[in-house]
Design a binder for these strands. Structure first.
Lengths: 165, 165
DNA sequence: GGGTGATATGTTATCTTATACCGATTCGAA
DNA sequence: TTCGAATCGGTATAAGATAACATATCACCC
C-alpha cells in the first residue's frame, strides 16, 4: 500500500505533527527492515526503540536505562548499550556525538545520510538529508589518500521553541 | 615578515612535513593571537598546547593530563580541562567529538571553519576548510527557524599510513 | 606602593558515559 | 538434536567530565 501523504522527516521534529503516526511509521519500518534483513528485533531492542521514539529528543544511554528499569526490565549499562549499538549499527537510530546521546531515526527505511540540527536547550534533534557526494571532505580525502568510513555532521543551536522571543 | 612558502594546513597531517616548523608556526600564531586579543597564555595553557602540537594526533584529556604529570606539572583533571577549554574556546585547538579528544589547530590564525578527517587507527586528524555558507544545514535551519551556533563535520576512516596495503 | 575585582589555579570529590569480561541462554540451521 | 553464533544477565571497572571552594595571581586604578 502506498502511503497517501508520505512523511517528510526533515523538519518534523520542530513542528507540531501527529506523533503517534510518526512513531508507528518508524516502528513498522524497523520491523519490516528486520524481516527483510534477517535481523532479530528482540524485546529489549524493541523497547529501547520505543523509548527513543517517545519524542524527538536525544536520550543518553543512562536515560534509556532508567526508563527500561521503570518498566521492570533488567537495567545494567550493557543492556542499554547493546540495544543502542544494534539500533545504530542498522540505521534505526543515530548517535549524536556532541551530546553522547541517541535519537531514533525518523526515516529508518531509506538509506539516507543524515545531518543533524540539535537544540542545546531541549535536546530535540531534527534530521536534514545530506545530498549524495562527499563534498569538501570527499575531495580532501581523495587528495590525501584517506578512506572515509563514516561522516557525522551536527549543528548545535536553538530550535524555534527554545529561541528567545 | 611574509612567510615565503605559506603552510597549506589541510592535507598536512597525513604527509611528511617539517613538523618542527609546523609546530613553531602554530605556537607563534597562538602567541600573536593572544597578544592581539588580550588573552593570557599561561604556563599550563602553553604546555597543553605544546603537548597537543607534538604531532597531529588527537589526545584525550587524560592523555594530556598524564603528559603534564610526567613533566612535573600538577595533574588533576580540571587542570587539563581548563586549559583545553581555553584553547578550544579561542580556536587554538579543536575538540573531536567522535573521539572525545582534542587536536591542536594547525592554522590558529585564520578564522576558518574546519571539517576533520580522523584516522580511526592512529587518531591522526587532518583539517579541511569548509567553504563559507551553511550548506544543507543552513538551508534546513532557515526553513525551520533553527538558530545554528556551532557546526561539527567529522569523517572517520583510515589515513594513507594505516590503510591496508 | 596598595587596594580591588576579575581571572586563573590547586584540590577534593563526584558524576556521567562506556566497555571488558564471563557464564548462561536462546536461536536457527545442518 | 546437536552445534555454532548471537544474545542476554550480571559484575566490575575504565574513561571522560564537572561541581564546588579555597588560594593565588594579574591588570588596573588610585
Amino acid at each position: 500500500m502506498a502511503d497517501p501523504s508520505p512523511i517528510d522527516p526533515a523538519p518534523l521534529a520542530f513542528q507540531k505533527h501527529d506523533h503517534n503516526r510518526c512513531r508507528t511509521h518508524s516502528v513498522e519500518a524497523v520491523e519490516a527492515a528486520c524481516r527483510a534483513r534477517g535481523l532479530r528485533l528482540t524485546d529489549t531492542r524493541r523497547r529501547v526503540l520505543e523509548i527513543l521514539l517517545q519524542d524527538h529528543r536525544a536520550l543518553g544511554a543512562y536515560d534509556v536505562l532508567a526508563r527500561l528499569s521503570d518498566a521492570g526490565h533488567p537495567a545494567h549499562p550493557p543492556v542499554a548499550y547493546r540495544a543502542l549499538d544494534f539500533l545504530v549499527a542498522n540505521g534505526f537510530a543515530h548517535k549524536i556525538e556532541r551530546l553522547n546521546a541517541f535519537v531514533a531515526c525518523p526515516a529508518p527505511d531509506d538509506g539516507h545520510r543524515p545531518a543533524f540540527l540539535i537544540c542545546r536547550d531541549c535536546r530535540t534533534v531534527a534530521e536534514a538529508a545530506v545530498p549524495p557526494g562527499d563534498g569538501v571532505l570527499g575531495e580532501e580525502a581523495r587528495r590525501t589518500g584517506f578512506t572515509i568510513h563514516a561522516v557525522s555532521i551536527e549543528a548545535e543551536g536553538l530550535c524555534p521553541g527554545c529561541a528567545p522571543s
